[in-house]
Nucleic acid binder design. Structure first.
Lengths: 245, 245
DNA sequence: TAGTGGTCTAGACCACTAG
DNA sequence: TAGTGGTCTAGACCACTAT
């Protein structure tokens, strides 16, 4: 049976099957996939289901489809430095500076409906929450509020996050395979402002980040940066999308 | 006949129908759409087709769906793709909204030393400069100050940037091969603030972007976004592959 | 319980591409 | 002409939400 039994929708399992072949190196860039009808036979699902899986992987840039010809594994694109998830402690040390942090909260809590939706898990009962201030040479540069899926990181609350970092621990339990970032400019308000040592109405970068490991959301985070002391950036090559002839 | 006859697929026409209602203001944020079955009746198409249209608009952020409750127009906070250089006019139209712009300056000027350094061309004598405000449904969402290397885009000053966009013209003369982004949060100050219709001390995203075509710097830009009305973001697969979804 | 969206199937017709 | 992907339908069952 090629498709593992799981509670996820069939088309997601078909996607997983294909991503697995690609991830294992069995299907490399330019490889021609079996036709929809072949996959229908091999996987024992309907053509609409196969088609949906292939369509979604195509719009995600994983596959390239050409009518009348076939479906192919897309050529890879370069990855941007800006969107990388890096350990802030490492980043600071890489600048030759001293990193320190203070753990202000580390607890179990109940997610509201919005948070449960962000975790893509409506029935989620509890989440872990941490609130940490990171300092560079003693100066606050980031307030990090994390919500963590307890199923993915059961020992989260037992960690000492003044010695290690959430990034470090989570990367061991549930390596990140996908990231979503949304950046806005906000006023930090009194609470976050005082943690960052800036005025409550000073401009402030708010980075919302969700990370996935496989198909499960591992963390939902909010990171505040003092706007005038910090910036996010990167330089990268623009890749050509689509079929590499 | 609610769906105009067209050569595009039915589900695209259903999407167009819905985007039209939203664009015209008939359905505003939070508005509850007719149920799938109602739309099946009204539009005379099958439920799978309606469902596909609604699903794609949901993944595009236009709609929000809650199982057992209904489908709603999303409270859109316009969002730009962070790592891709996209035409803002196209981005806005893709959300089913109306794009308009005002050209406040379009001129030849002498670069200062810093600007010449950013162009990586110390001897640069003149640069083109444009200052444009972009609006989404009449509301300012971006102030775009561009400096353009005249050697790469000689007819820049003759373009009508209320009909086309700098992106569009430049992409034809000098396709972007490399990009650098730096994002900070700032106070816009009186001038930019008034162009964006926000207070001079309201939080504001400043995106500095340089683009290359081959080894030459084509543009050095500063883009201001009203922090509370706009965000930058994206979702990416980690590793060797490009953006997800 | 009734109504919503989420998924899945079997079968159909079409447009496109290659040999 | 045979094979591919693109679309569309009618009907079904399910999970979830509100009342």
């Amino acid at each position: 049976m090629p498709l593992p039994d799981a509670a996820s929708p069939l088309y997601e399992r078909v996607k997983g099957y294909i991503l697995g072949r690609i991830g294992s190196g069995e299907w490399i860039a330019e490889h021609k996939l079996p036709s929809e009808n072949d996959l229908v036979q091999q996987l024992g699902v309907s053509r609409m289901t196969v088609h949906r899986a292939l369509r979604e992987l195509t719009s995600a840039g994983v596959l390239v489809r050409v009518q009348g010809v076939g479906t192919f594994v897309a050529a890879t694109r370069p990855q941007s430095a800006l969107m990388e998830v890096r350990d802030i402690a490492e980043e600071i040390r890489a600048r030759g500076h001293r990193h320190s942090s203070a753990v202000l909260a580390l607890e179990k809590t109940r997610p509201g409906r919005d948070l449960a939706r962000e975790f893509e898990a409506a029935g989620l009962r509890t989440v872990f929450r941490s609130l940490i201030v990171h300092r560079e040479n003693g100066e606050p540069v980031q307030v990090e509020e994390r919500h963590v899926n307890p199923g993915m990181a059961p020992a989260y609350l037992e960690q000492d996050f003044e010695r290690t970092t959430p990034y470090d621990y989570l990367q061991r339990c549930a390596p990140v395979t996908e990231v979503e970032h949304v950046i806005t400019a906000v006023r930090p308000g009194a609470e976050i402002g005082s943690l960052l040592g800036i005025a409550p109405d000073a401009p402030c970068l708010l980075l919302r980040r969700r990370t996935w490991s496989g198909t499960a959301v591992v963390t939902v985070n909010r990171l505040w940066y003092p706007g005038e002391r910090y910036s996010l950036g990167g330089r990268y090559r623009v890749g050509s999308r689509g079929p590499a002839s």
